[in-house]
């Protein structure tokens, strides 16, 4: 519990979360404006469009995986991992605290992203004179964004522990999301099991899957499996390696 408190304190005593939060808000504003602004009124009034609009909060999952990795790699980059290990020498305990902290922090960020999405969408819809229906059918992606982000944070912590290099981890994650997932899409139906696709399916939160998208519960299981695999591998690497003598 102490270790978790310390991890949360670490997260809020740098500007990291602030920048990610602001960046996410700006990005949401941009993409939502483009999305709503470019649809015609007829399609805007459809429930399915409204649902996919509100799913933009799921962009928080991308920030989540980055934050998860940074909570680990920043310690290696600055060498603070040494001090952290002196205070909490049982490495699996330190990493578990980081995992829990990442999930909690990301939970807050995803809720914020959902709230911002709702606000921005309401303003745009109002401006265009369309009524935004708020019911379980359109709001399901809000829960999906929160759940998907929390799973993404777990994957991020695992990747961070596995690589332990700050820029390396960020580049690996972005390359995977921008290129890797796209390449896999070409592989056909099994692409829906790729981590990015699975998280997307959690966010979309469709009860029943499709050829290119898993149903929400299957996607949650697949996502958790990825988080478990990356965390296990990453934790083992950290447990069996020396802390760096100083930051890079």
């Amino acid at each position: 519990m102490n270790a978790l408190r310390a991890e949360l304190l670490k997260a809020v005593t740098t500007r990291l979360l602030l920048w990610f939060g602001l960046g996410l808000l700006a990005f949401l504003l941009l993409v939502l404006s483009i999305h709503i602004g470019s649809h015609d009124l007829l399609s805007l009034s459809q429930r399915s469009t409204q649902r996919s609009t509100l799913a933009f909060g799921g962009l928080a999952a991308i920030v989540a995986v980055l934050i998860g990795s940074l909570l680990v790699t920043a310690e290696y980059a600055h060498g603070t991992i040494n001090q952290s290990l002196l205070a909490v020498p049982v490495r699996e305990k330190l990493l578990t605290a980081k995992l829990a902290a990442a999930v909690l922090v990301v939970f807050a960020i995803a809720v914020l992203a959902d709230a911002a999405t709702l606000l921005i969408a309401e303003v745009w819809y109002h401006g265009r004179g369309v009524n935004l229906h708020l019911g379980s059918d359109t709001l399901a992606p809000f829960l999906g964004a929160v759940g998907g982000s929390m799973i993404a944070a777990g994957i991020g912590v695992g990747v961070g522990a596995l690589l332990r290099r700050q820029t390396g981890a960020i580049i690996a994650i972005l390359l995977w999301l921008l290129i890797g997932e796209g390449v896999i899409s070409a592989a056909g139906d099994s692409a829906r099991f790729a981590p990015g696709h699975a998280l997307g399916a959690v966010v979309a939160a469709h009860e029943v899957g499709a050829r290119d998208m898993l149903g929400v519960w299957a996607a949650v299981v697949v996502g958790l499996l990825y988080a478990a695999i990356f965390c296990t591998a990453g934790f083992l690497v950290v447990l069996n390696s020396d802390a760096p003598t100083s930051g890079d």
Partner: peptide
């Protein structure tokens, strides 16, 4: 420790 290990942006 020999190297001081701090996050530069933290007080």
């Amino acid at each position: 420790l020999e190297a001081s290990n701090y996050h530069p942006a933290r007080s």
